[in-house]
Design a protein around this nucleic acid. Sequence first.
DNA 1: TACTGCAGCATTTTT
DNA 2: TGCTGCAGTA
Length: 785
Amino acid sequence: MTKEDDYLLQLNDQQRDAVVYNDGPQLVIAGAGSGKTRVLTYKIVHLLHHGYEPWRILALTFTNKAAKEMRERIQQMVGPAVASQLWMGTFHSIFARLLRFNADLIGFKSSFTIYDAADTKSLVKTILRDMELDDKVYKPATVIAAISNAKNALISPDMYIADSAQMSADERAKRPALGAIYRAYCARCRHAGAMDFDDLLYYTNVLLRDNPDIRRKYQEYFRYVLVDEYQDTNFAQHVIIRQLCEESKALCVVGDDAQSIYSFRGANISNILNLHKSFPALRTFKLEQNYRSTQNIINAANTLIAKNKEQIPKQVFSRNDVGSRIEVVQAYSDYEEAILVANKVSQMQMRSHDPYNEFAILYRTNSQSRRLEESLRNRNIPYRIYGGLSFYQRKEVKDIVAYMRLAVNPDDDEAFKRVINTPARGIGDTTVNRLIHTAMHCGVSMWNVATSLDCYDTGLKSAAIKKVTGFVELVQKFVGMITANASAYDVARSIVEDTRMLASLIHDNTPESISKQENILELLQGISEFVGERMEQSAQETTLVDFLANVSLSSDQDMSDSNGEAVTLMTVHAAKGLEFNNVIVVGVEEELFPSAMSCDTLRGIEEERRLLYVAITRARRHCVITYAASRYRNGQTAPTRPSRFIGDIDRGYLYISPGSEFSRSDSVINPLDNYRDSMGGRMADDRRRSFRHPLVDDEPARSNIHPVNLSSNPVGSSGGTQADGGTHDVADIKVGMRIEHSRFGVGTISAVTSNAPSPTITVAFNVVGEKKLLLKFARFTILDS
DNA sequence: TACTGCAGCATTTTT
DNA sequence: TGCTGCAGTA
Ligand SMILES: Nc1ncnc2c1ncn2[C@@H]1O[C@H](COP(=O)(O)OP(=O)(O)OP(=O)(O)O)[C@@H](O)[C@H]1O
């Protein structure tokens, strides 16, 4: 081995085999943290060392951030000049580029717009209204999912409508018009010169399928294709890969079926399982050693995932430290959970001296972040939330962006609708609806109608026509600038000035207005930075079209990372592929994790279990799982039960946190009892006695464990007392009493004021601290005096 | 047409 | 709880 090959020494034998193999299609299938991404990265370096031109290597990742990190890693090994020339990115961003080069072949302009989720939804709603369909029956979300599924399965509207099985299934589901909606949706996108996310994959397939010369060109051009996270690719992506590699067979994909968590997006592990059918010479490589996590974490994760029926058996082991057990923490409420988590973070931080960016708090749904955010802020712990609404989703920013979209492609109906009356220029719903209606029925864009009002029978009055014409002229100015090759920044600045969107805010000094002004300026700043960066790199793709594509394709996930030390808050989905020294998985409860939506099928449950597997295996050294006994959801607090998945993990790898804060007597009526009654269940008294945490050995009266039931069948209790203990008269209250509150947990009464019109008590709660409660409303149980 | 206020309702995950 | 759609008013 020469010095050049030093990088090969940083791999184990199995990894090295996979890296140097170059005799055909290759599948690397291995568990979490076994170095799959590392293999992909090093393989690219290996290819570069062996004479492959960087611009002829195509590497597809799951997020833009992953692509960026891989490129940086490679750059360290081969230098920026080479690394910057690699084709590296998500399927969507890479193929959007490819589609722009060849747009004419599929009947689009190279400046086509990319519709985001909001545009898609708005368009679907418009179509539903036009077709006079009830949006209670045709729920936009359902319609969008149906369209997305069809595209991901490469089913065109015509195929969909011709498929009698599909159509009769829709009929049975009382949604016979889905096919027609799909057709209308695609037609509208076409007239608008727009593609949605799924279209980027769909039309790439069409492009390659219908244009043999183009297909051959790219087959030859890309000498090697590598794909990360293959378990989460869908059929459309699979077929793209097949078309690109069917001749060269120079393909390396890596994945882990146990980490397939995007089935809602059409991801399908049969892509992995059936890869050998597309590539009979496929050779499979396995990696078994986990380098990321402690033995305890890996073993715990292994016992969890072993409960799944559908999986490829595989070995994962760790030779790192044994490490500590996964800690399971119980809280009374989501509120208390958030405080416990914040405490945990600072406790672990003090013990390990890890910087805050080595901490991640992972949750199932984005809405869980708010509570955590509050408690971290109260404790002055820096954090960064991923997901949620991004900069580009704010109203004022979207408005400016809509003008930019129109400048580049005035047929973009969604942008047109958005700003035709923004800022207000007296164009009301009636006028807009007439334009929509005319455009739909003449098969043209709203812009087409608006620019030739005399050719269409819109029924608009002259006052309305005048206003619309004013808007058209405004947009035309921007379109003209684009045609004249004005720079992205100049067009954007002109938009901000001419629409007076910034000027109209300037006299308003409310915080909201100031924030809007800042956002608009930041957008301009963002454009100039974008152009600046691109100029430095290649002086290519610096137009407004490129900026807009970047906006639609780069999500919040990809935004400026590592800006300072901060705890990461994100969904488990978003954490895929990442790693942290310390991971806290919160809200591990029935109906949340697993989600209530996934509970009716085994497939659904197994995917949720994989999701928890992903969450746990993000941790290098410490992992904590928390759940609460009640949670605030949809405007009310509901009792919750711990997730069945906790019970799936071998007890030996868990530490059920006793924590004094859980001190609570067994005689107390469980807050869940009432709920269970209302569910119609009944539980015998003796049954209730064992109503303790089943993870705890069944010894009598373990008073330090919060009595929550792990079994997933909802059982009721015969408890006659009010679940939350009800309210109390001031005469029954004494300072020094210990009480239990379903939200705040256990605490001691430190003061009583009975003089005021409404008596209050002050309680020092064990976890959440001191609270003042109005006795009239406070519901709690008296534990002892 | 523009703006306000209210009632009802829904909630997974994302390129 | 927070958004969306709708009705009512200026
Ligand atoms: N041979 C090795 N020597 C040292 N560290 C390694 C080796 N292989 C992998 N690692 C480290 O193990 C960690 C996990 O690697 P990597 O992210 O490539 O795994 P992965 O299989 O892609 O993980 P996952 O599927 O969980 O996302 C990384 O920190 C990586 O640097």
